[in-house]
């Protein structure tokens, strides 16, 4: 069985935020007003964290894309009292919105801050409302939401593979929206257990590291150090 994971090449990321925009559109993530954002209620399942070093004229910017880390030992799943946060047999951490009671334990438990509580009924400007993705649920108010590696895309890929009587291929057949959109190809996605995938090879490269690795959460999102 595949173990889906992502590799993010920090050397390639230009900070263009295509992944952020794509994620918002793909997963029907509501638009948050600036006022709400100031209150810390911004919802970005995928975000790019900028870091500026040095002073003019020697300025250097680093960009760190940050989706859900999809931990192998996810703290959010451990604390969820209703088992709404679940880890699938393939290792993907997903959230079942219909189960969530909005207790926000997972928001507290996640060391990466990638779980978001939706305080208000989702709103979109008129044009965006007409362009919502029918493949993904619109969440009710008062539940936690987060990146699940575009699990609905895996459901589609699995169905296609099943029709052909095979398993989903380790590379290329199922990719999250952010990976598909990245123009710099900084995001690489695939089966980490398959030695033939680019993702698995890069995850084992000496440049690879994971966020807050010493916590023991074993994220399936690997970063490649800048060269």
């Amino acid at each position: 069985m595949a173990r889906w994971g992502m590799v993010i090449d920090l050397d390639r990321c230009t900070g263009c935020q295509a992944c952020v925009v794509t994620c918002k559109a793909e997963n029907n993530v509501p638009v948050v007003t600036p006022r709400e954002a100031q209150r810390g209620r911004l919802m970005l399942w995928m975000t790019v964290i900028p870091e500026v070093e040095g002073e003019f004229p020697r300025v250097r910017a680093r960009f760190t894309p940050r989706p859900c880390m999809q931990c192998d030992h996810p703290p959010c799943v451990k604390v969820c009292p209703v088992q709404a946060m679940t880890k699938s047999p393939e290792g993907t951490v997903s959230h079942v919105f219909a189960r969530c009671i909005g207790c926000r334990f997972c928001v507290q438990a996640c060391p990466y801050g990638v779980t978001y509580f939706n305080w208000q009924a989702p709103t979109w400007p008129k044009d965006l409302r007409e362009a919502l993705n029918p493949d993904f649920a619109i969440r009710p108010t008062g539940v936690v939401e987060m990146c699940d590696f575009c699990h609905h895309r895996l459901q589609h890929a699995r169905e296609e593979a099943r029709a052909d009587g095979r398993e989903v291929r380790g590379e290329g057949e199922y990719v999250p929206a952010c990976v598909q959109a990245c123009p710099a190809r900084a995001l690489i996605f695939g089966d980490l257990d398959d030695p033939n995938t680019a993702a698995s090879n890069l995850a084992h490269s000496p440049r690879a590291f994971r966020m807050l690795e010493d916590l023991g959460t074993s994220p399936k999102v690997y970063y490649l150090k800048e060269g």
Binding site: T86, P89, V96, H151
Partner: peptide, 10 residues
């Protein structure tokens, strides 16, 4: 067949 939540829910 799968009864995992995410086999159907999303």
């Amino acid at each position: 067949v799968s009864t995992a939540c995410v086999a159907c829910h999303r």
